[in-house]
Design a binder for these strands. Structure first.
Length: 871
DNA sequence: ACCGCCGGGTGCC
DNA sequence: ACCGCCGGGTGCC
């Protein structure tokens, strides 16, 4: 028998998808040093099993069924025995305790994280005083001996399976075995990596059976819905009005029974009203949601709205944004009386929601929309409850939640909570995730174009938000879905598919309705324009390249031979620093700041200098870095000693809320006084946008394109995209000089200015800006820039997906012209190297999964770094 | 608990 | 009998 650790597909290969994802540099660096998670099969093998006894049944109310899964919880504070191990059922009710003799070694194993213990009660469910429990130990291979020894020292012995249980339990599926706590070594042949990848790809591909019924929106919606939007509306409405039991629950002789855990309760499990709308970007999730809000109030009736002869007064500035007159009709709200829908979204799409409400709701009806945002927001539970819609951001929500005493959003009983770009709550440790879980609502929706970012772990948070019992508790999610699936268990995968299918609607741009494409988008054509540096530029570039090679040469040896994690991280950051300089030279020599070479971090002041270098690098990389806590653009950026960058308020909140605060990205200990601030721009070399401005080959190439375009058709609008905001500063000079009207959007802009910039650009009246300077990641997804039909990519990004997403902002629903994309690449430079890496990443994503094990994953990362160093 | 364990009652065959 | 045996009281951690 081979060991479990050798050939099972692991979640690592799913994580590896991230190469095509949208990682920021600091996340990339963090990933190099991080272990790849806790649930890799290598760390999650079956160490052994033993039958134990649950005692003290008569003192507790929790009951179990034959074959039911139970959880084991340490009770170190138990006054009778500090080794106490409590046994609880799926709803968390205590069933009893593990008999103390066995609890003693279990306590040691659990407290020292040698293994996780899972229990299943095989029979004896009606016993009065005690019952057997099959215990299975899961943990890292390296802990196997320690666990076995510990058990043996107390006079027990771990076996590999339970004897006799199969006599009455005939299910031959691996799930059946799992329910008994049996070894899954006996399971059917596990899925191969390819099969699992395929299954994963298809996870959200719904065949649309039962989901093709259409529904007309309420009259208050003045936009006519496309067929697929009517289908989504119909499906969402039926999800909200459903009386069905949640997935995997059945009614059996007056009891409600969960077929996966064998758990039964008298009370009907709470209905899960809502789900995941996972349509591709541009299919109109926002419009569909607006239609849902006004079309499906209580009892399947439309939201009662007053008609008004007055035309709508539209004013963006006041925080109270009421469409029409302000009176709330009293009648018509049946049931609980909950009225308001809360929409939580990233800052970048806030204005889009307002636009869409204005655009799609008839001007003569009264829809109360309150923008709960900004310092002036009114924290009144009453006011919020009386709205039809309350719009807010993840930041506002978590910042209110942070001040526990005063979070009005958490005191309202919402009719509906909608999480836009809901995948941002994928990290359960983030404050905003916790804040979102605490919201009280009858119905819950997640809107997301990318419901699974990189692994199953992300899905857990979504289940948790939807309150899909028992998957809202980590242990049950892991036992029933995550672990079986990552170990290639077919039944586990089947369950996952049933689960996802029941609550998700996903269509892609390529989906078909009755044989026709959902949406026919205009073409998009990509041209690469090679730029040759002038002699002067080439000379400077070569100078910097030589310096860089010298620095890199110094570490190459230690990287090529094996490497210490710490060294590799700092070196990787330094390699990136050198590369940023070269990339800047390719764009414009005026971009390049002074490079302060980094040697060993010795004294704190040197460390400090290194950290300042690093944060400067991150912020100037032009990638509009996100804070990993709020997942929004960095505000008051600070860097930790472990070299991770966050917003100061976010990380301070983390430090405040935990006794032993740890870095959310790498779990290193962090302290407020060790945070290093970004010193600001003053140490930058002046970008020379003033009198001594000079052009560059790339700027010349851009300008000649723009001028030619204006000659051909003066109404054509273009996006000029760069990762370097200071490059955008430089480009502004010739744009002005040649009389272009332009606007600008970058990560540093406040919400108001952003919205204004987008609005101005989208405006088609004569004299409106024809060019938008756009920083690659500004604002994230969701922004609508369909006025543009040309995109100029000034500098290549590490990540091809980031470029695609950027193009998607104009190549989406509403675009009437073909979209032409021009990518500038400097010949014989780091940029060509980057294009190669882009291609490699894309290949990996496409055919993917040649990589299974974390070692290979690390190897792949190393290959990438090596490739990067070939400058 | 139709057990094990405890401790009091008891004591030839 | 400083034992064995009996049978009642009792019972998670």
């Amino acid at each position: 028998m081979t060991s479990n650790s050798c050939c099972h597909p692991s979640s690592a290969f799913i994580d590896f998808l991230d190469v095509g994802g949208t990682m920021t540099i600091s996340q990339e660096i963090a990933n190099l040093t991080e272990d790849s998670g806790q649930d890799l099969p290598e760390e999650n093998v079956q160490i052994g099993s033993i039958q134990g006894t649950v005692v003290g049944l008569r003192y507790y109310t929790g009951t179990v069924n034959r074959g039911e899964m139970v959880s084991l919880v340490r009770q170190p504070q138990n006054p009778y025995d500090r080794n106490a191990v409590m046994v609880a059922n799926v709803y968390g009710s205590q069933v009893g305790h593990i008999k103390k003799e066995l609890a003693a070694p279990m306590a040691y194993i659990m407290d020292n994280n040698l293994a996780r213990v899972e229990g299943v009660v095989p029979y004896g469910e009606t016993n009065k005083f005690s019952m057997p429990v099959n215990l299975t130990f899961w943990g890292k291979e390296e802990n196997r001996d320690a666990v076995h020894n510990q058990i043996r020292r107390h006079g027990f012995k771990l076996g590999t399976e339970f004897k006799g249980s199969l006599i009455w339990y005939t299910t031959q599926t691996s799930l059946g075995r799992d329910l008994l706590g049996l070894s899954s070594k006996m399971s059917a042949i596990p899925l191969t990596v390819e099969e699992l990848k395929n299954a994963f790809d298809k996870l959200f591909d719904d065949l649309m059976e039962d989901k093709t019924r259409e529904m007309e929106p309420a009259e208050a919606v003045c936009t006519s819905l496309l067929p697929h939007q009517k289908q989504a509306l119909s499906w969402m409405t039926s999800r909200e009005n459903s009386n069905d039991l949640p997935p995997f629950w059945e009614e059996k002789s007056g009891l409600y029974f969960n077929v996966l855990t064998n758990f039964a309760v008298k009370e009907r499990p709470e209905k899960v009203l809502g789900g995941i709308l996972a349509d591709d970007m541009g299919l109109g999730k926002t419009l569909t949601t607006i239609a849902l809000i006004v079309s499906n109030f209580h009892n399947g009736k439309p939201l009662p709205l007053e008609q008004s002869v007055r035309s709508r007064k539209f004013d963006r500035n006041p925080s109270l944004w009421v469409v029409g007159t302000g009176k709330v009709p009293s009648g018509g709200s049946g049931g609980s009386g909950a009225r308001a829908t809360l929409i939580v979204c990233p800052l970048s799409v806030l204005s889009n929601w307002l636009d869409q409400f204005e655009q799609h709701i008839r001007a003569d009806v009264t829809l109360k929309v309150y923008l709960y945002y900004g310092a002036e927001r009114i924290r009144s539970v009453k006011l919020l409850s009386e709205q039809d819609v309350v719009l807010t951001t993840y930041n506002v929500l978590s910042s209110d939640f942070g001040n526990k005493a005063n979070s009005p959003l958490h005191k309202v009983n919402w009719l509906r909570v909608v999480l836009d770009e809901g995948h941002v709550i994928r990290n359960p440790n983030a404050l905003q995730s916790k804040a979102v879980l605490e919201l009280q609502s009858e119905r819950r929706w997640i809107l997301s174009g990318t419901p699974i970012q990189n692994s199953l772990k992300d899905l857990y948070m979504l289940m948790s938000f939807l309150k899909l019992k028992p998957f809202d508790v980590k242990e049950w999610w892991s036992r029933i879905i995550q672990r079986p699936v990552t170990m290639g268990d077919r039944v586990g995968l089947k369950n996952l598919q049933v689960l996802v299918k029941g609550i998700t609607l996903r269509r892609t741009k390529n989906s078909k309705v009755a044989g026709r494409m959902l949406v026919q988008l205009p073409e998009r054509r990509v041209f690469v324009q090679h730029v040759t540096l002038s002699e002067d530029e080439r000379e400077e570039y070569e100078q910097v390249r030589k310096e860089g090679r010298k620095v890199i040469g110094r570490w190459k040896q230690c990287i090529y031979s094996y490497f210490e994690e710490g060294t590799i991280m700092t070196n990787y950051a330094d390699v990136l620093a050198i590369l940023v300089r070269l990339r800047q030279y390719c764009c414009h020599p005026g971009l390049v700041g002074k490079y302060t070479g980094a040697d060993d971090p010795g004294t704190p002041s040197e460390l400090r200098e290194r950290l300042i270098n690093k944060i400067t690098l991150v912020l100037n990389s032009g990638s509009d870095e996100e804070c990993a806590i709020c997942l929004d653009s960095l505000r008051q950026p600070v860097i930790t000693y472990c070299a991770h960058v966050y917003c100061r308020p976010c990380i301070c909140e983390v430090i405040r809320s935990e006794k032993q605060a740890r870095c959310p990205l790498c779990r290193a200990q962090i302290k407020t006084k060790e945070l290093v601030e970004y010193p600001g721009e003053e140490m930058q070399a002046g970008a020379a946008t003033g009198e001594n401005w000079r052009s560059s080959s790339k700027v010349d190439a851009l300008m000649s394109n723009l001028l030619k375009l204006r000659n051909e058709d003066p109404t054509v609008k273009s996006l000029v995209v760069s990762q370097f905001t200071r490059f955008m500063d430089l480009i502004e000079v010739p744009l002005r000089e040649y009389g272009f009207s332009f606007t600008r959007l970058d990560g540093s802009m406040a919400q108001k200015t952003r919205a204004k910039a987008i609005q101005d650009f989208q405006d088609s009246s004569p004299g409106s800006p024809t060019i938008m300077l756009l920083s690659l990641k500004a604002g994230g997804v969701g922004i609508n820039l369909t006025a543009a039909s040309h995109v100029f990519m000034m500098d290549p990004a590490w990540n091809p997906a980031a470029e695609d997403q950027c193009v998607d902002r104009c190549h989406r629903l509403g675009q009437s012209r073909d979209v032409v994309i021009t990518k500038f690449i400097v010949k014989d430079s780091v940029e060509e190297n980057m294009v190669k890496i882009q291609k490699k990443k894309q290949e990996l994503v496409d055919k993917a999964f040649g990589v299974k094990k974390p070692q290979d994953l690390k190897q792949a990362r190393m290959e990438e770094i090596r490739a990067l160093m070939e400058i």
